Amino acid sequence: MVSEYDFWLLDLDGTLVDVQPDYVSGVFDEVGDRLGRGFTDREAEIIWHGLGGSRNEQLAEWGIDVERFWETFHDVEDAQARAEHTYLYDDADFVADLDGPVGLVTHCQQYLTDPVLDRLDIRDWFDTVVCCTEEIGWKPDPEPVEMAMRDLGVGYNGHQGVLAGDGPHDIGAAWNAGLDGIHVERHGPHRRGQCVLGDHRIESFSELGSD
């Protein structure tokens, strides 16, 4: 399957790396204290991993002011602490062996992404890194994907590309940009609360093989 594609784009959090649960619970405890509304471990997991779909829709369903939540969340988060609690999935090192252009397209902000790439020593895996913003757009918007493609110098004529990620927004972004989408299911549909479609559905990159 790997050799089917001329270039690869990948999501970061939940796809190649993840964060230790104690860090997540600590962040949500502090956010909850500031908002005056506590979060259970399950609620923190749902928002952190985007289980069940849109984080903003879920927050609104719980009666939480979305803008205030994210302002508080980003104020609480410490980039270095997050990097120190971030680990690489065992199967993620397949990226280092990919031939052809490889890019990262992540919702994780630049100030959080950079320390993770540096601490885990994986920056050289990627030929471009695109961190989504309000200006660039958020997956499933195709613009961040198309920006990465421009950076890589690949287009639609004669190039077959793929985007791999752990969430439905990753597959949506791939399809909206005209690419194949690989869904990497790190949680299972029962824990996620839904089944995510994709051109390929895997639980580990080791399932891809080398052909």
Rank of each mutant, 00 (worst) to 15 (best):
G52K: 01
F28S: 09
L59E: 08
D121L: 03
W70Q: 13
G193E: 00
D151K: 13
T40D: 07
V19K: 13
Y87M: 14
V129T: 03
D114L: 10
L98Y: 12
H190R: 13
S210N: 13
F69V: 01
E61A: 07
T133V: 00
L120G: 09
D22Q: 11
P101F: 02
Y89L: 11
E61W: 07
R123N: 10
D151M: 06
V76A: 07
G100Y: 08
M147V: 15
T128Q: 02
L179V: 10
G63S: 09
D93I: 15
N56E: 14
L208E: 10
C131K: 05
G193F: 01
G188A: 11
E45A: 09
R186G: 08
R34T: 11
G63R: 08
D22M: 02
L152N: 11
E203Y: 07
Y156A: 10
F205P: 05
G178M: 11
P142Y: 08
W138R: 09
E84M: 02
F73N: 06
L98A: 14
G161R: 03
R150V: 14
P21W: 00
E67S: 15
D211C: 05
G193L: 03
D13E: 14
P101H: 02
H107W: 14
R192A: 12
N56W: 01
G50L: 01
A164L: 09
L179F: 03
E134Q: 14
D13P: 07
S206C: 13
P140E: 06
L10K: 02
V76H: 07
F126E: 06
E185F: 08
L12Q: 04
T113A: 15
P140I: 03
V154G: 04
L120Q: 11
D151L: 13
I64R: 08
Y87Q: 06
G181D: 07
L88M: 12
D141C: 09
E143I: 11
E134K: 04
D151W: 10
A44P: 06
G167Q: 15
D99R: 15
R150Y: 05
D124P: 05
R42E: 10
A79D: 11
E71D: 11
D41N: 08
R82A: 02
G178C: 07
